[in-house]
């Protein structure tokens, strides 16, 4: 067994006094969605395959989150920096008295966020195997 797996032993008794994430004392309703009810509780539940798949899934989730955040916040950053670096150009009305600065930061940023967030939710849930 690799070093990584050897570290995945059940929590020691001493850990209880510092708090755990064991939810056994939590009342779960019988009809609760089981998608999120799994937790590897013993070394038997944990294999190298499980470890690899979790690491892979986490890596893909991280990539998806970073891609979504990078696209959104990158676009906002460009709009803000451009507004400050080129105030004359960004203040000229281009559509119904809206300047590029007002249009991007005051209006367009919102629907763009909705679209990116929607794509993210669909992909993230699909990636997790959730409906």
């Amino acid at each position: 067994m690799s070093d990584i797996l050897r570290r995945n032993i059940p929590p020691s008794e001493g850990r209880d006094k510092y708090g755990t994430w064991d939810l056994s004392n939590d009342q779960v309703s019988p009809d609760e969605d089981l998608d999120d009810a799994y937790e590897p509780r013993s070394p038997h539940d944990w294999s190298e395959e499980t470890d690899r798949s979790v690491r892979l899934l986490m890596k893909r989730q991280r990539r998806l989150s970073l891609t979504a955040a990078g696209s959104l916040f990158g676009a906002v950053l460009v709009a803000v920096v451009a507004s400050h670096l080129f105030p004359e150009i960004m203040s000229v009305p281009v559509w119904r008295n809206f300047s590029p600065a007002l249009l991007t930061i005051g209006v367009i940023a919102y629907p763009v966020t909705w679209v990116i967030a929607l794509v993210y939710v669909l992909l993230a849930n699909r990636m997790d195997g959730l409906r």
């Binding site: 799994y38 590897p40 944990w46 470890d51 979790v54 899934l57 997790d128 195997g129």
Partner: peptide, 14 residues
């Protein structure tokens, strides 16, 4: 690692 499996893993996929 168990913590990461808890917060990022999915039962069915695993």
């Amino acid at each position: 690692d168990r913590f990461m499996a808890l917060v990022h893993g999915t039962s069915e996929e695993q």
